[in-house]
């Protein structure tokens, strides 16, 4: 599903050159539930941007679901983000003054799906995260946990190849965090590939595989044998 071959990412601004990723080679299979961890400045955010096709590798190859991302144009990247990736952000990033169901419909709107198809799929996704009864609420009428569930429904709406979550519980209390992790677990059980970026060990503990980054390199990559089940 995700194949990194000797990926380097260098940010150059003026004289400064920041080597954010160094020779990263990585393989993530379909149906995996992976967390990417590391201290700040370790390159995990860059990793998240590259996996999410928001940024391209400086060198090396990245193939997502059979598509060579390194050679894609920015327009093609928009399509890949729309079709292959479901983003879940730390601060939810739902559109204000827009109902939950319309937020969920948005990626399908960009995909050009019909109104009827959008509505049906959005209702289904909201039902999956247990928010069907709140679908006409606006984000400011929902709790943090509920907003993140709407965001997960939005990520699911175009049936993406991977769900990419960036600190999805960073702004949530522990009860909501457990709830969200429960949903991710359930989605993974149903066959979704999930990549989660976090710096919290107790969140990473829910996943099957933990990849540690330090100084732009993979420090460790191991299966999580002490997995926590919710």
């Amino acid at each position: 599903m995700i194949q990194f071959g000797h990926v380097d990412k260098i940010y150059a601004s003026g004289e400064m050159r920041v080597h954010a990723l160094r020779d990263v080679t990585l393989h993530i299979d379909e149906r995996e539930f992976v967390s990417i961890m590391g201290p700040s400045g370790s390159g995990k955010s860059t990793m998240m941007n590259v996996i999410g096709c928001l940024d391209k590798p400086t060198s090396g190859t990245y193939v997502l679901d059979g598509i060579d991302i390194g050679s894609a144009s920015s327009k093609q990247l928009s399509v890949v983000r729309n079709q292959k990736i479901g983003f879940v952000f730390q601060n939810f990033n739902l559109l204000k003054r827009t109902s939950a169901i319309e937020n969920v419909e948005l990626p399908m709107l960009y995909a050009g799906k019909s109104r009827k198809e959008r509505r049906e799929r959005a209702e289904y996704c909201l039902e999956l995260v247990g928010l069907k009864d709140r679908m006409h609420h606006k984000p400011n009428e929902l709790s943090g946990g509920q907003q993140q569930r709407v965001a997960i429904a939005r990520a699911l709406s175009n049936d993406p190849a991977i769900i990419l979550a960036d600190e999805p519980t960073g702004n949530l209390d522990s009860v909501s965090s457990e709830e969200i992790m429960g949903i991710f677990k359930q989605l993974n059980d149903e066959g979704n590939t999930i990549v989660l970026v976090t710096h919290e060990p107790e969140i990473a503990a829910h996943t099957n595989r933990i990849i540690w980054f330090r100084d732009g390199k993979i420090e460790s990559d191991r299966l999580n044998t002490e997995r926590v089940f919710v």
Partner: peptide
């Protein structure tokens, strides 16, 4: 957000 979830330029 819009660009991340697939809005083209």
């Amino acid at each position: 957000t819009r660009k991340a979830i697939g809005a083209k330029e």
